Simulated scan of single mutants.
Amino acid sequence: MDWLQIVVLALVQGVSEFLPVSSSAHLILVPVLTEWQDQGLAFDVALHLGSLMAVVIYFRRELWQMMTSCMAAVKGQRVDHDARLAGWVVIATLPVCIVGFLLRDVVADYMRSPLIIGVSLIVFGLWLGYADWRKRGTRSEYQLTLNDALLIGGAQALALIPGTSRSGVTMTAALMLGMSREGAARFSFLLSIPVIVLAGGLEALELIGQPNPVDAWAMVAGALLSGVSAYACIHFFLALIKRMGMQPFVLYRVLFGIWLLWFFHG
């Protein structure tokens, strides 16, 4: 891998992981459009690690409070809103784990075509636009219920379809359930932590026993660039979302999807 490929892939992963534009769509298409060789599983793990570190560092105070509240609840103390939020994150992660385990090979083998990616970008982008336009409410992530967590978790399972966007579809479901833009985004970002851990863990397991050499410098550089860009993306997205809403991302998704359909099937 040359440095241009490292930088491009790391920035694409870091920025698109948390924006509602589908990181999988962009990472699938980069080597197609550039004719670069596949970057390999080891580099993918490094990119995921960088994104994970970014979201953990950004939400470190919330995560610490959730952990301490859960420990207190286990000891028989009162279950507060932080402990409940931790429970909702776990519950909302279960559907994607189950569906991903059952359909992982199907998705990898049959659902990574530009046609599916383009249609998913458009359809789920329009759904996001509708939710942001008509269904936005005022509830925060601390006001979720069990039913909310299950519905958002079910929506998250749809993100296994390339082009859907995990962050986009979970924000859409949250907005439809009456959450505020900030609350929907924050809960989506918290949900990304166990998902990235599980996805990166599966990729790391596949690396065990592989004889291919690993470019350590490329992995370190990729992880750092992915982490820094992801942290900046989270920060600015949460700072600007109240004013700009989701519509710029909806427009980008629709135009990108139309271009893909024209480029590959026109």
Rank of each mutant, 00 (worst) to 15 (best):
T172H: 08
A83C: 08
I161P: 10
C97G: 14
R243I: 08
D132E: 00
R60Y: 04
Q39S: 13
S229F: 04
I161A: 05
E141Y: 01
P248D: 02
T68S: 11
A174H: 01
L52M: 00
E141D: 12
Q5W: 04
A218R: 07
A173P: 09
L160D: 10
R78C: 08
I116M: 11
V79I: 13
Q77P: 12
V79M: 10
A108E: 15
D109P: 06
V55N: 05
G40W: 00
S226M: 01
G200K: 04
G201T: 00
P31K: 02
K242Y: 01
A199I: 04
L19K: 11
F236I: 10
Y130H: 10
A155N: 05
A72I: 02
R112I: 01
E182F: 08
L177D: 04
F59I: 06
V21W: 02
V8A: 15
A54M: 01
C97T: 14
G209S: 13
A72G: 14
R181W: 01
K135D: 12
G222E: 06
L150T: 02
T170V: 03
L85W: 07
P248I: 00
V197M: 12
L27D: 08
T164W: 11
A230I: 07
S23M: 04
S226G: 02
Y110Q: 12
A54N: 04
A42F: 02
V21I: 13
T164V: 14
V228T: 14
V90L: 10
E35S: 15
A155I: 01
Q37F: 06
I152E: 00
R112C: 05
Q5C: 10
G40A: 09
A86K: 08
T164K: 10
Q156C: 15
E182I: 15
L103M: 13
L240I: 06
L85K: 03
L9M: 15
R139P: 07
L160H: 09
A73T: 12
F237I: 03
T145K: 07
T138E: 09
A232L: 15
R181I: 03
A223G: 12
V96Y: 02
